[in-house]
């Protein structure tokens, strides 16, 4: 088995490295987009009553559709409907972002609704306007309490990113499958790639747990990780 490892994995490390890089940047960009979109959807849902239903529909759709279905839909239907995305990479990023934005919107919402009313009242009592209260009291606490869940969502994105290989994005999974299809020796390559994914994702969720514990001790906030 070690022999095979040297024959099939080692010479392809360059290719796998490129695939890993693509996985990393797709996940990073999708995560950033998901946070922005999710925050926006959450704010609309909580604070803009007449647009609430639009936000709810978006969030429910984003969460209820499997990532594979979203990938195919964004990749094949959107270019005809909207004219973009123009590349498979962006289709992957957008689909991943949509999927996670739904969960993040709900995460932010549960953070906002979980804040005790007294926090806001203390701000009102000293004469703070509501926008200041939102900016200085609500947002920091929501981010702190929800930080573990948010970091977890990045782990989820990395897991889901394995599927972008289906629309021919040359990510880590795609390269692994390419090597397997070429040489028909799947054991070493697939196990190696699986190990990379597992360690990456484990590191992310362990960090989330660590953050949860730290914040609980420092700020006395109960976090739902």
């Amino acid at each position: 088995m070690i022999d095979n490892f040297n024959r099939f994995v080692v010479p392809n490390l360059g290719l796998l490295g490129e695939g890993l890089w693509i996985t990393i940047w797709i996940c990073a960009v999708a995560f950033a987009m998901a946070v922005v979109i999710g925050a926006f959807a959450c704010i609309v849902r909580v604070y803009v009553p007449f647009l609430r239903i639009v936000a709810v529909i978006y969030i429910e759709f984003a969460r209820a559709t499997p990532i594979l279905v979203q990938l195919l839909w964004v990749n094949y239907v959107w270019p005809e409907l909207f004219g973009f995305p123009k590349s498979v990479e962006w289709a992957g990023v957008i689909a991943l972002a949509i999927q996670s934005s739904g969960y993040l919107a709900e995460t932010f919402r549960s953070g906002i609704e979980g804040l005790s009313r007294g926090q806001v009242e203390a701000g009102l009592a000293v004469g703070m306007p509501r926008t200041t209260i939102f900016r200085r009291i609500i947002v920091p606490q929501v981010l702190l309490v929800m930080a573990p869940s948010i970091v977890n969502q990045l782990a989820v994105i990395v897991k889901a990113s394995t599927l972008v290989s289906v629309i021919a994005i040359p990510d880590l999974m795609y390269d692994a499958l390419k090597i397997v299809n070429q040489w028909f020796e799947p054991i070493e390559v697939l196990t190696f790639v699986a190990a990379i994914y597992v360690t990456t994702i484990y590191t992310l969720s362990a960090s989330a747990k660590f953050i949860a514990d730290r914040f609980r001790v420092k700020y006395g906030l109960s976090t739902y990780a």
């Binding site: 990395v158 394995t162 599927l163 799947p186 054991i187 697939l190 994914y197 597992v198 994702i201 484990y202």
Partner: peptide
């Protein structure tokens, strides 16, 4: 538990389909 919670489903399904039978 930690191993399987942190493994992408797609990776696992490919591994089970291609690698496990050989092993």
């Amino acid at each position: 538990a930690e191993l399987f919670r942190n493994t992408p489903e797609f990776v696992l399904i490919i591994w089970v389909y291609y690698v496990l039978p050989i092993l």
